[in-house]
Each structure stands twice: as structure tokens, then as C-alpha cells.
Write a protein that binds this DNA or RNA. Structure first.
Lengths: 224, 224, 224, 224
DNA sequence: GATGAATGAGATTTCATTCAT
DNA sequence: TATGAATGAAATCTCATTCAT
């Protein structure tokens, strides 16, 4: 089962200035890639501009030709990642012929697969977001926007599948995304593999959470 | 439904030294609380020792009387949090008379409630861990140990409830913990409340994921 | 003929923060004095923070404990200088028993003497102002305020001496201050001494310009 | 009353090299003008090569085709200004039929007018000189030479007008130049106009200072 | 115990100048 | 001629940590 085809990041010109010639574009790409590598190795906060330029095999001065500082850099990367992530949302799912309407386990699995490869690709970034989103307003808003879109798409899929569902689609959807996201992080952190078996299990859990008939007792009405 | 009684947070002597008189004990407590506050406002990396001592209304010099450095401080806090978190694990659950054996929604709800209050109490710390765990080995290991315990406890509960279950209890349990943890973060981040309704929904989802009969297709055997 | 007694600079706490103990006040004083020395040797723009701390025999970090940057430093010095300069204005003159009312050459000489010693004391600063006043708004405004006061005082003295004078006192006064100020700069720049003889000549010129009966033709009425 | 005719500003080749075609000549002129504009806005020290080339609508590389460095640029401008200023000196005055011999107010006024338009034209440069002259030896010497010529010319005019004068012509002349120069600066700095009225007043003051009969007491003989 | 002052390693950033095309 | 890209020396600034009182 192939992952969803994700959109070409393209990205290119972040917060920047003058139009770049091809040499300039290449240098900028190098810096972005280098940053990703550096973040992976040492985390955002542990990464020095110095580390990035060393990996990109260029100079300090050059870095500041393309980014006004480290924050600018992570915003550029975030923009790329957010663009790709959006490709996993509602419309993209439909376009890819994937729908949760029928409660299809396979469709769900395909989508989770796509999410998984996205996560793996941008893991260093995703890890940083947790911390950054609460500090840097720029990144925070970017992430919020992206996440909003993702959540809304998922929620409407869920709603469509559950015309008479008893759970709030927005809350449900957020719980699903939370599980997916953090599961990846935890597996890596604990040194466990993220393989097909793990994703199968994950899929089954999500599938049950969304489509299983109610078992056991329902929550009582509450005040507050 | 009252939250699980969590362990006395008094914690005890961090990485530090000599027995403290009550004045000293108080100063130290002030510093720890101040640190928590500072982390909440600016994140771990954004927090300067300066910020902490200002909030604690004490001086630079005093800080280093109680902690050998900034890491020492966060390790102390982590230790407190980890101690409390452990109280949510297997043994604690049993002691509290809570068991998932029967697939009781109410028992699950009680446990989730406990988790929720723990999370809310230590949110600033939890947010930092994501980033820190990859940088500071000390904290990383503390968190890993704590998480291991939590996961093992949860997994054995699941196993007990599902003697013939088809999903790996360790993986399942990690997915549940992931969902709980991240759900809280996301709700806060998106400005949504973490109220009884949200926790009910969450509980129902976990309950279904764990105890629902299989619906739809099962995963096929895979290679890889 | 003794220079006017100028006010105690006192100054002390510039843009700064917490109350300083005596050690701190001393360090700050050292830095201010060192800065003056450095500016004298290399001009404001030629001076590095490094130069200042080397002269003050302290460290980089200490500098930033007292000043947030080089601009902050020059603003502190400017404040001192402006305070002293104000002591040469109207009220100070009267208090010192000096009045231009009678067109007294001696009184004028005394005042010019005071100005001269002020200038010599703050020469490095005065030189920088020309350039800085147009760049840094902070310094610009400080200087403008001080100069305004000085000019107003002088103008009212002139007006008092010339109840029927034909020249605008404000313009006249500015011309006098201009001459005094720049004369000092030029003498230094051209390597000529600023001695009693030079100041006598200067005094006589100012005296004539202010009190001489009109000689030759007056300006015709003009348009524009 | 028309200003003195000032020398052709075409200047000529600065520190630079090969004969320039007309296109090159134009580019160079653009750069010089741009520099003037930049200096006016941000002062010499506040001006980056970048600012200049942006205003001149050309590139970094091009700048260094015409000037070997930033100092070279300001020296070129200084040379232009100095050439024009020299046109206000002795010979130029005589050639223009202007002489202070007779103590003519009108002749003085004409000369001051010329000085005034020169100053206004080169204000950004003049402002920078104060600071620069103490840093850059090249510019310092250029200015000193120019000023020397100006002063000598003025002094001999004064001497001629005062065969039996009691004041040192060199000192007197310097005081006059000082007044003229700084008066312009101060008027601009304080936001006051430099109009005919102001220049009339200035002229009258200089005229009195130079030609008025002694009033009041003379300085006593001094030692030192 | 407590504190204000001092430190300096190390990170960030600027910008005049050179270079390859 | 002209240009965009690259460079790196040198400056600024931060902040965890130590010290003297």
C-alpha cells in the first residue's frame, strides 16, 4: 500500500527579499536541508547557526544572506512542512480517492501510512514544535493554522462516516491526530521501531475508536 | 469521581547536599515553584536562571546554593513529576481498586481523570520534555524510566483484560498513553478546554480502542 | 579670573535599573570615565566596547551589567555633560553675579572662560554630538534640550542688555554660541592653542558683535 | 545679491584609475550623488556601502569598480567640496571684485551668502567631517589644507582692512569661520530657517566684530 | 544562608570587500 | 562594465556560573 502522494514542497522564497538566481536558490536549499539535519542531530535549541553552515559547507555570512536569523530559518522550514501536511487533509484525501465514509480499514491504513511518512520526514521539526509553538508566535501561528486545517478535514470525514455519531467530531479528530503524532514520537524515543506491524495496530485502534459499536457503559450526563 | 490520590509531592533532596533547615527547605521550594512558573511562561530554553530567581525573589548566588546548575534544577523537577506519574501505574491502580479487567468504562474514566490532573499540574514540564529528552541524557533517562514503568503497568492491565487479545499490549498501551498526553497538549495549544465532556469523549475512544470487538477488515499478513 | 563654579555632576544612575551599592557605583563611574578617555582617543564611532572595558580594567560582561549598549553609554555621558552645561545658562549666570546688562567685558570674559573649561572637559563628547545628534534620536533630543536652555538664557541676557537692540536676540545668541563652540574645535583641529590670548580675542569679538554701535551700512529691507 | 560663482564641481578623477567612458563617468557620478544622499540621511558612519549602491541603483561589485573602498569615496567627495570651498578664499574674493578693505557690509554679505550656499550644498559632508577628521588621516589632512587656505585668505583680507588692528588676524579669521560654519549647523539642528534675515544678522555681527571701534574695557595684559 | 558584582566562553550578527560569471 | 553571491574578520551581546563580602 503506497503512501499518499504528497505535494511538491517547492516552497523556495521564505521571508526573503530579492529574486534569487539558480545559484542562490541552490544555496538556500542547501541551508534548509542542512538545518534539518542539524535539528535532527541536536534539536532546534541545541543547533548553532555555526552547525548549519558547516553542514551546508558555506559561511556564516552566507547564512545571513538568506535568513535573518535562526527563527527565520525554522519558519521557512515550518512553512514547507505545513504545506506538505496540508496535503493530508480532507480535499487531498478525497482527491486521492480515500474516504472514511464506509469505515474502510484499508483507507484508514493508507492515510495513516501517509501521515507516518510525513512524520518521519519532518521528525526533527515536529519535535521542536512542541516547545517552539509556545515561545515563537510566528511558528506557533503557522502550526496552529496547519493543524486547524488538518483537524477540520479529519472531523468532516468522521462526521460524514457517522451521521448519527454520539461523539463530537472535532474532539474525536483531535484525539486521533494526537495519538498518531505522539505515538511516532514515543516509539522513537523508546527505541522501538515504527514498522508495518505497529502501524497496523495503530490503524486498528483508530478504526475501533471511530467505528466500533458502543461497548460497556456510556458516560452519564454531567454538570460542568 | 475523585482523581486518584497522587503521591506526596514533597519529593525530597534533589541532586543537592547537606540537610536543609526549614528556612532552606522553603527557599528551595520557592525556587522549584518559580522555575515551574518560568517554564510555563517561557519554556525551558527561554527561561534564564535570572528569571527564576526574580520570581522566587531571591538572588543568583542563592540559586547555586541549592542547585549545581540549570540542569540540576530541571532534573529535580523531573524527579518530582516522575514520582507522581508513577503513582498512576499498575500497582497504584490496583491499590486504588481500579482495574481494567472487566473493561469498566468508569474505572478507565477515573484513571484518565487522574492522568489529566497530573498533566495539568506539570504541563510546563511535559512540554519541555519533548525537546529536552533528546538533548539532556539525564532528563532523557529519567523520562524513559518513568514512561517505561507507566507503559508496563498499562500493558499488563490490558493483557489481563484481553487474555486472547490480538493486539500487542505494549504497542496498544503506548498508543493510549500517546493519545492521552498529546490530546492535552493539543487542546491547550488550540485554545480548547479540557473539560469533563472532552475527557468523556477521550475515555470512550480509549475504551472502544481497547475493548471493542473487531469491526470491518483485519490487517492482512504483511512482510517487513 | 576663575571659571564659573560648575554644578556637581552627581549623575549616577542613567538608564539603569536596580539601586547600586558603592562598589557598583564605582564600577559604573570607572566605565564612564574610561569611555570618555576612549572617545577622546578614537572618537565615538572608532571606539569599541572592548576599548572601554580595557581602559576601565573590567570585563565585557560587566559593561553590559551597567549599560545596555554603546548608545546607552553615550546617553549617560550626555546627560552628565548636559547637566553641567545647563549650569552656564541664565540663572546660573545671575547666581554667579554675572550679568551682561552693563555690557561688561569682564563679565563676558568670565562666562567665556567657564564655557571654555566646560568644552575642554567634554571635548570628546562635543565632537561626537555633531554626528550623533543626527542619527541617534535619544542623544539628539538631549542635546537639543540642553542647547535650547542655554540659548534661551543667553538670549534673555542679550535682550536685557539691548532693550532697543535691532537684532533678534535668539539669532544673535545662537551665533555667539556657535562661534564659541566651533572656535574651540577648530583651534584643536588646527593644532593651535586655546589660551588666554585666544579667549581674550574671542571675548572682544563677541563683545563688539553684541555691544558695538552700528558701523557702516545696515542691511536693506529684503523680501523673502 | 547673487552668490559668488563657485568652481565647476566636475571635480575629476578621484583616487581612481583608467579614463572613463561617458557611461562610466555617469555611473560614478550616480554613486557620488547617492553617497551624498545617504550621508544626509544616516551620516557617514551610519551609511553602508549597501545603502549607497541601492540609492544609485547599481550593485556592490560596481561600487568597487569605481572606488577602492569606502574611504576612497568620502575622499572623492571631500575633494569636490574642498575645491569649491577654496573658491571662497582670498584670490577668489578679489577676482570676484569683493574686498573687505573698505569694511563694506555689502561685500561681507555677498561672501557670507556664498559660504551659506556652499554649506547647504555640502551639509552632509560638513557634518561628517567633525567626526571623520579625527579618525581618517586622509580626510583630516584634506580638510585641514582647505581650511588653512580659507583661513589664510580671510586673515589677509582682515589684515588689509585693519592695518593697525589690535587683534590677531589669524585668530579673528578663525573665529569668523567658526561662527559661520556652526551657525548653519545649529540652525538646521534646532529646526530654524537659514534665511536672509538670519544671514543679515550674521553679517552684521561679523561686521561689528571685525570693524567696530572698541567699546568698553580692553583686556588687560596677561601672562601665559 | 544570602547577596550583588564580576566573569568570559561562546553565540549571534554585521558589513566591507572579493570573486566568478 | 556589471552583477549577484560569497566570505570572514571583527564586533556585539548573552547568560550560566563563580566569587567576595
Amino acid at each position: 500500500m503506497a503512501p499518499l502522494q504528497v505535494a511538491d514542497p517547492a516552497v523556495g522564497v521564505p521571508a526573503s527579499k530579492r529574486a534569487l538566481r539558480s545559484q542562490g536558490r541552490q544555496t538556500m536549499r542547501n541551508l534548509l536541508d542542512a538545518a534539518m539535519k542539524a535539528f535532527d542531530e541536536r534539536g532546534y535549541h541545541g543547533t548553532r547557526v555555526n552547525d548549519v553552515v558547516k553542514i551546508a559547507n558555506t559561511s556564516h555570512g552566507t547564512f545571513y544572506l538568506y535568513f535573518s536569523n535562526k527563527e527565520d530559518l525554522i519558519r521557512a522550514l515550518t512553512m514547507e512542512a505545513a504545506a506538505e501536511a496540508t496535503s493530508l487533509s480532507y480535499d487531498a484525501l478525497l482527491e486521492a480517492g480515500i474516504s472514511l465514509d464506509g469505515g474502510s480499514w484499508d483507507h484508514l491504513r493508507t492515510w495513516i501510512d501517509s501521515y507516518s511518512s510525513l512524520w518521519l520526514r519532518y521528525a526533527p521539526l515536529f519535535r521542536s514544535w512542541t516547545d517552539l509553538a509556545n515561545i515563537d508566535t510566528g511558528v506557533g501561528d503557522q502550526v496552529r493554522r496547519m493543524f486547524s486545517a488538518l483537524n477540520a478535514g479529519m472531523a468532516s470525514q468522521i462526521a460524514a462516516a457517522h451521521p448519527t455519531g454520539d461523539l463530537d467530531p472535532e474532539v474525536t479528530s483531535m484525539a486521533v491526530l494526537a495519538m498518531l503524532d505522539r505515538f511516532h514520537f514515543m516509539r522513537e524515543f523508546m527505541g522501538e521501531p515504527i514498522d508495518d506491524q505497529a502501524l497496523d495496530t495503530l490503524t486498528t485502534m483508530v478504526h475501533r475508536a471511530l467505528f466500533a459499536p458502543e461497548v460497556g457503559r456510556k458516560p452519564k450526563a454531567r454538570t460542568g
